[in-house]
């Protein structure tokens, strides 16, 4: 009797998990179709990070940085979307009924965009100076040049002596 009950009790979670997995596949599809901006957010974030890490070109790193930030803006904007929501401006004398959209995320994104633009400006200014000095924007070439110049002497010494201290 108890065994049967246990079995029954055991079968319930199995059923439940089967159901859940059924709905999970369905919801994964749902997410792709109805929550596509969240998917875009995750994708942009990953592409941005990947570009920053993998691309040796400094300007492309900055582009990656911008993608990364844009992804975060997208998250804020998406989360602030309300079905049928109105702009939160109530004209004088009008009725204060209906759904309004919270303005806070939009304000945050506006501020963050300004911050992002100024960061890009500083980054590009630094790129110009690096290009003027070394004539390249590729990090691998830059590292070689800096090492030859003596500005990066410690690197080979720490990471094992792969090229030795020839300048001494």
């Amino acid at each position: 009797m108890t065994v049967a009950l246990d079995a029954a009790a055991g079968s319930v979670p199995v059923l439940a998990s089967a159901l859940a997995s059924g709905t999970a596949t369905a919801s994964a599809f749902d997410v792709l179709t109805t929550r596509h901006s969240y998917v875009a957010f995750a994708l942009l974030l990953c592409i941005g990070i990947y570009m920053m890490i993998a691309n040796p070109h400094l300007v492309k790193k900055i582009i990656g940085l911008n993608l990364f930030q844009t992804a975060i803006f997208l998250l804020f904007i998406t989360s602030a979307y309300v079905e049928g929501g109105a702009i939160p401006i109530v004209p004088e004398g009008a009725a204060e009924t209906g759904t309004f959209v919270s303005p806070l995320p939009h304000v945050i994104v506006l501020t963050a965009i300004v911050v992002g633009v100024s960061l890009t400006a500083v980054g590009l200014a630094l790129c110009i100076r690096i290009y003027d000095e070394y004539g390249t924007l590729r990090t691998d070439v830059l590292r070689e040049l800096l090492r030859d110049e003596g500005s990066l002497p410690q690197r080979p010494a720490i990471g094992g002596t792969d090229r030795g201290e020839t300048d001494e």
Binding site: M52, L58, L65, L119, V122, I130, L152
Partner: peptide, 22 residues
């Protein structure tokens, strides 16, 4: 100080620091 090496160090910091702030 307008040297190339410091600009490179600064840009490195900029990328990492911005990721941190983001």
């Amino acid at each position: 100080d307008r040297s190339g090496a410091s600009a490179y160090a600064s840009l490195k910091y900029l990328v990492v620091g911005t990721v941190g702030a983001s």
